[in-house]
Amino acid sequence: MQNIRIIPRLDIKGPNLVKGIHLEGLRVLGKPEDFARYYYENGADELIYQDVVASLYERNSLHEIISRTAKDLLIPLTVGGGLRTLDDIKLVLRAGADKVSLNTAAIKNPKFIKDAASKFGSSTILVAIEAIKQIDGRYLAYIDNGREETGVEVVEWAQQIEELGAGEILITSVDRDGTAEGFDIDLLKSITMRVTIPVIAHGGASNMANMADSIFEGKASALAIASIFHYSAMNKLIHSEEDFLEGNNSFKNSGKIFSKIKSCEISDVKSFLKESKIPCRPVI
């Protein structure tokens, strides 16, 4: 069994780290740089920055955040959100990203995956799938943060992604995102059975037993985790008021913790994995 990677995922809107539920209702949690550094120092294996409004606003602020962090956070950094052209990819790589995450542009034009993989190398291209379970049990891929339906079946799309030369797939269960109800194991399994490239589970990370299931049963190679890490990190990081000039700050300023979600640290997850005989890189 390979070493399972634990990847904090940071959704970014403008200058802020945000987190929503089902990819919507974004709350401001703090500065992405502070959280990124905290996760790096606490044993993160990689980081994901997802610009959640890139399709709506200009993206220079993200490039600045990448450049500021990539210099001293010496682990792989994946950046996604609104990347539509080979030039878009080149610019985020030049800013310091190691991999890019494609979704909307890839599903609208699958050849984009092939072009990107041949120009930048397969290992640089990750394709993200936003899956929503239908009433009939099928999983369909969505774009634009789970807002727009494509009619594309998730499993077929995953196979196509692999054939087109992507190095990795990140599968988000939009239904579970931000809920801490657990990764959707059936969704994971349906994909990992059909592709040989690594699959990162995302959406719903919660209790440890479910994490173990997502690895043993779901065959995930990595877990992308947001809410449960963010709510723990938030309490350890001290923010100044000017961090919160934009966006929905009422949650952050209220001093509430999200009572439904039991937060935890990367080290908690890694100790659990170790006890469960799941190999991972230890927190140093």
């Binding site: 390979q2 070493n3 399972i4 290992s123 990795e168 040989t196 490239i197 690594p198 190679s221 990595a222």
Partner: peptide, 17 residues
């Protein structure tokens, strides 16, 4: 993509090893 025990291997290898 398959090891000696007939189990599938993820390729590329992407991990800390």
């Amino acid at each position: 993509t398959i090891n000696k025990l007939g189990e599938s291997i993820r390729v590329p290898q992407i991990q800390w090893n």
